[in-house]
Write a protein that binds this DNA or RNA. Structure first.
Lengths: 146, 146
DNA sequence: AAAGTGCTTGCAACTTAGTTACATTGTGCT
DNA sequence: AGCACAATGTAACTAAGTTGCAAGCACTTT
């Protein structure tokens, strides 16, 4: 199944209507293969199709509610969004991870399971935003800068 | 020693000049006993003394550089600042913690030591922003809301 | 296939956090 | 007390994100 058909069946499965812009948001996130900020997504889509930022924010909220994308925490007060793709098991953005500000390498922090720790502390009913991204400069780029 | 004198000696110790507004920033954070956002600090100070937001941001940057306050990560893309008080060992904001959006209760997550985990992963030279605050609704308030 | 209803998008205007350049004021030193 | 320079205020700006309303497009029903 091609990317286009995958995308359409995903939107249908979630019970929301299929529009060009929703498909572009998912396409851009798929092609990027990493988390993107709303302005980044906006610029990418605008290369192919006109889109207003209001629409993008509305689409992102919808896709988040439908569990198609995930809002990710960042240390620099910038929000990032990543696809939740159940088929991509090697998806590095879905757990807490470190992202290099220079080369954008992603280093997952597997051993850090905030979700389960918080549930222990706060009771099993706890539901909240749980993603953690820490930005910095990875060891490789740090050497090159110095 | 009273709060006023403590504050003055702190600024002197750090080698920066003593101004009314710097003292107010420290005072407000001390009285609050928890982390505050820049707009919160601004409103608090304005109750007692006129202050411009530009000045507040400059003071916060300075106090952060001088290790008097700490910038804290928040899940909602809002920055928070907390005093670094070496005498207050029970200071709940300095490690990663959960803050209730309703009652503002602070629940430290002691078992989560992001700092040391990252250092292991990324090498001992790693220095970066390491504070984590997670906002949500604590079990007590969740019961009351429902 | 056409047509209508309601969901989706765009537009304009706004809010809020945060920054910069430059003018003014106040702190700290002599 | 007065001077130099650091600290503050003013105004104007950027950038993210939101809201209300009007226009357009997707999906259903015939």
């Amino acid at each position: 199944m091609c990317d286009r058909c995958k995308c359409i069946s995903l939107l249908k499965r979630k019970g929301i209507s299929i529009t060009i812009l929703r498909r572009y948001v998912i396409k851009v996130l798929t092609l990027a293969g990493r988390s993107l900020t709303p302005p980044e997504i906006l610029r990418q889509i605008q290369k192919f199709h006109p889109i207003n930022k209001v629409t993008l924010y509305r689409i992102l909220r919808l896709l988040e509610k439908k569990a198609i994308v995930k809002k990710i925490l960042t240390i620099s007060n910038v929000s990032r969004y990543a696809l939740i793709d159940p088929q991509a098991n090697g998806n590095k953005h879905l757990g807490p991870h470190f992202i290099c500000m220079v080369c954008e390498a992603i280093i997952p922090i597997d051993s850090l399971n905030i979700d389960s720790i918080l549930k222990k502390k706060l009771g099993s009913k706890f539901r909240g935003p749980m993603e953690l991204t820490i930005e910095g400069i990875c060891p490789k780029c740090r050497k090159e800068v110095k």
